[in-house]
Every structure is written in structure tokens, then in C-alpha cells.
Amino acid sequence: MNSKSLYLNTKIYDKFTSFQPKPINSVYSRGIKIPEDRTSDEIANLIPKDEYFTQTEIVDIVDNLGYDTKSYPQWTIQFLSEGTQLVDGYVRYRFNKVFEF
């Protein structure tokens, strides 16, 4: 190895160690059969907005609302974890939106 390649490797190492990646968001979606008696806004109003949930808790919330998650066609209830927030080893999500697809 000559001194030039060592210099190049040092520059690469310095770039690598100073790199600050941008946060990556995580999304968790739960499908529900399109309800005949509610709008997407009405469904959205049933889900707490300022709380964080694990995937297991999201499944429980949707199941406790009584929606069919196995039949089609479906709407999508989306939860978002900004920056992929981990608490006690679990990703925590907050309600984001109900998509009519």
C-alpha cells in the first residue's frame, strides 16, 4: 500500500464516520372490509390520534372496533412511526390516515 491509497482510505473513513443518515419512517397498514355504515372520516375519528401503539396493539384496536379484516374489498388504516421509533424493542406507531383503497 502506498501513502496515496492510505490518504484516500483515510478520507473515506472520515466521510463514513461523519455520515449522519436521515431518519427512516416505518408504516404499518391494517386492511378492513369497506363498511356500509361509516365513512373513512368516521372510522378515523374512532382511533386515538396522540397515542403510540405496537403492531400487536394496532391489531387489537382494529379488532375491537369490530371490522372484518379478512374480506374484500378493503380500505387501509395506516399507522406511521416517524424515524422508526423504538420503545422497549418494539416499533411504535401513531395513527396516520384511512385510505379508501
Rank of each mutant, 00 (worst) to 15 (best):
M1K: 06
N2A: 03
S3H: 01
K4T: 13
S5K: 10
L6N: 13
Y7P: 02
Y7M: 10
T10S: 14
T10V: 13
K11L: 14
I12Y: 09
I12T: 06
Y13A: 10
Y13C: 12
T17Q: 11
T17I: 13
S18Q: 06
Q20G: 09
Q20T: 12
P21I: 02
K22P: 04
P23R: 09
P23S: 09
N25P: 09
S26K: 04
S26L: 08
V27G: 02
S29R: 03
S29Q: 07
R30G: 00
G31T: 05
G31D: 06
I32G: 01
I32M: 01
K33L: 06
K33P: 02
K33A: 14
I34Q: 10
P35Y: 08
E36L: 11
R38L: 11
R38H: 11
S40H: 04
S40W: 07
S40Q: 01
S40A: 10
D41T: 08
D41S: 14
D41H: 12
D41Y: 13
D41L: 06
A44W: 03
A44M: 01
N45E: 15
L46S: 05
L46I: 04
I47G: 02
I47L: 06
P48M: 07
K49I: 09
F53Q: 04
T54D: 08
T54K: 00
Q55H: 06
Q55D: 06
T56F: 14
E57N: 09
I58D: 04
I58W: 05
I58R: 01
V59L: 13
D60C: 06
D60M: 06
D60P: 02
I61S: 04
V62Y: 01
L65Q: 05
G66Y: 00
Y67I: 03
Y67A: 06
T69N: 00
K70Q: 15
K70R: 14
S71R: 08
P73L: 14
Q74E: 02
Q74G: 00
T76P: 00
Q78V: 09
L80C: 11
S81W: 03
G83V: 05
G83T: 03
G83M: 07
G83A: 02
Q85G: 02
V87N: 04
D88Y: 07
D88A: 10
Y90K: 11
Y90G: 00
Y90C: 04
Y90E: 06
R92Y: 08
R94A: 10
R94I: 06
V98N: 03
F99L: 09
F99T: 11
E100S: 12
E100D: 13
F101G: 14
